[in-house]
Design a protein around this nucleic acid. Structure first.
Lengths: 117, 117
DNA sequence: GTTCTATATACTCACAAAGGTATATAGAAC
DNA sequence: GTTCTATATACCTTTGTGAGTATATAGAAC
């Protein structure tokens, strides 16, 4: 049942934060590091976990690995990501991550090719 | 973060099935057993897991323990249960459980006090 | 009181997950 | 080629989870 794999991905705070930020657009690992304030290995492993279960897709761009939400999400995934967005909008931690993303966006634009907006 | 606890509950097939069936109304353990076709201890432990995290509530009625969804679910819980309902509607296993519930309802009505509809 | 019924809990085992440290890899720059 | 940078992976430890077997508990029936 694919639903389970989705929920497995959603039951960790770090992964929820990654997905929340990804809702704004593609991003590379080092930018996740800055936004979440978590070590590289932790970010990287959780992204691998999400990738193995089809919650994110990756593309290499030079040295950078650019992660994004699936281009064609399943019905279940779409529903759950929408639900997460909805819940995240009221949550301080999630909001703080998005605020940081917004603040760092100009800096990112100059230092990487992933077009972080 | 309460969201995490919700997702922890949702990342197991048995618990998803329990919650799906509970969407139709309160039910006691032995009826879950019949509907899911799983052993008592398994049902009972997963219900305890759900209860500890506030996803279900219990009330004793004689020998029976009647479980139901929270009377006043949080915003997050409400959103996620709705999402689950939505996804479950398209899933064969979930549909089968609901079909069994419907089929067994008359029998339940005669043998227990939980008013399983 | 004893017995029965419905349910919960304790205990075990196997396994997955999360975090940290150290190291490997792939591509870019030189 | 060497070096640097970004990212991934291996390994280890701790903790949590799921399932099963056996046993305990609480109330009902007698």
């Amino acid at each position: 049942m694919e639903l389970i794999q989705i929920y497995e991905c959603l039951c960790d705070a770090t992964r929820l934060r990654l997905l929340n930020v990804l809702g704004q657009g593609p991003l590379c690992v080092c930018h996740f590091q800055e936004i979440l304030g978590e070590p590289q290995v932790k970010i990287s492993k959780h992204l691998a976990y999400l990738r193995e279960r089809g919650l994110v897709e990756v593309e290499r761009s030079g040295n950078w690995m650019v992660y994004e939400l699936p281009a064609k999400p399943s019905r279940e995934l779409k529903a759950n990501l929408a639900c997460l967005q909805d819940c995240a909008a009221e949550n301080p931690l999630f909001r703080r991550d998005l605020a940081r993303l917004k603040k760092l966006a100009p800096k990112f634009a100059g230092t990487s090719p992933c077009g972080c907006a």
